[in-house]
Design a protein around this nucleic acid. Structure first.
Lengths: 189, 189
DNA sequence: TTCTAAACAACAACCGTTAGTGTTACGGTC
DNA sequence: GACCGTAACACTAACGGTTGTTGTTTAGAA
């Protein structure tokens, strides 16, 4: 995975990386809203259309690595130990994610996200997609027999836990508190 | 409230109404994405800048009357009968709202919203604001003594209930099902 | 009446995004 | 090694939402 053959793909990946790095640097430097797409393209020495062939939108430049968020959640469901209850597995994963994005070094990025209205909305709509995937994964678990609505509800709640905890004074404690509520909600189904 | 003195304010309100009506008509007619701001302004016989002095964005044209959504939720909390439990009051209100937006005559608008990505995202970010207001209202209730996190969590869950139920096959039943989960979540706090 | 502030209009511009049109350079094939 | 298909990239120009600027009208207050 660290050795992709083919000069072409390496060049492509390099271009993509250069764009992402340049964008993040400029954004953190001057502020997300103060930096235009044309600025990023010029600084990365690519055409605007090239930039958009690598990233679907300006916001996507920021959430570049965050694509595994979705995977991690669904895998927390599908790859959990046999007979391990659902909610604790999800709680562990969310706890981990919250810890990561409140860790040193990552903070400035999330601070920038909270600053910009556009980024907050983009992240939220990303979360909705993640919730749908998670709901599907939960519904597909053969050991569970909840209704579709219940699965989708719990998935939403779990996603909520992440975003609420991130904004709380003590994120770790907030995750615990919210997951107690989620646990209770899950048990009545 | 139906008799605002001052010709000026009446004219202003009339202009605003005319813009909103024209916009909704064009949107339902040709589709939201197929109608541009300039089209709406021309058809309503106002300048583009005038339109934007009345509405903050294109999406806001669609959610014109929906501003009472927020009020209704907070009032369901603050104006409920003494000693009436919180969750059933909210359940009733959400049930009512879901019934309203799945009723004949209102359906086309919500259908249009579901069609457009921009509108869906806008509505979702509106919901986040509503959740914050609701959380504040819940936290302000002297009869309750939950933590801030718990209040914000429940508020989110209630908002989730609304959007999840609207997408369900049987919206009314979905509200009941989700609120059983919310009730359980609330009781552990 | 006269003054003031708000509503409104016209124009131009900015920004994110996309379409259209080529040009280059890599990868596989003979 | 010559050849071809294709994917990456560039350039221009535009579109649609939004904002700033500037100036004009008009309603209410003095």
């Amino acid at each position: 995975m660290t050795e992709p053959p083919g000069r072409r793909e390496r060049k492509k990946a390099a271009t993509r990386q250069k764009i992402a790095d340049t964008a993040l640097r400029l954004f953190l430097d001057r502020g997300y809203d103060a930096v235009g797409i044309r600025d990023v393209a010029a600084e990365a020495d690519v055409a605007v259309t090239t930039l958009f062939s690598h990233f679907a939108s300006k916001e996507a430049l920021v959430f570049e690595q965050d694509d595994n968020f979705e995977q991690r959640l669904t895998q927390a469901v599908t790859n959990r130990a046999p007979h391990e209850p659902l909610i604790p597995a999800l709680r562990r994963e969310i706890q981990e994610m919250v810890r990561h994005c409140t860790a040193d070094g990552t903070v400035p990025i999330y601070h920038m996200i909270d600053e910009s209205r556009a980024l907050r909305e983009y992240e939220e709509s990303m979360r909705l997609r993640h919730a749908e995937s998670l709901a599907t994964a939960i519904a597909a678990d053969p050991g569970l027999s909840q209704t579709t609505t219940a699965c989708r509800t719990i998935a939403r709640f779990v996603i909520d836990a992440y975003s609420l905890a991130r904004e709380a004074d003590d994120p770790q404690a907030a995750v615990e508190e919210i997951f107690q509520m989620i646990e209770a909600a899950w048990e009545v189904t």
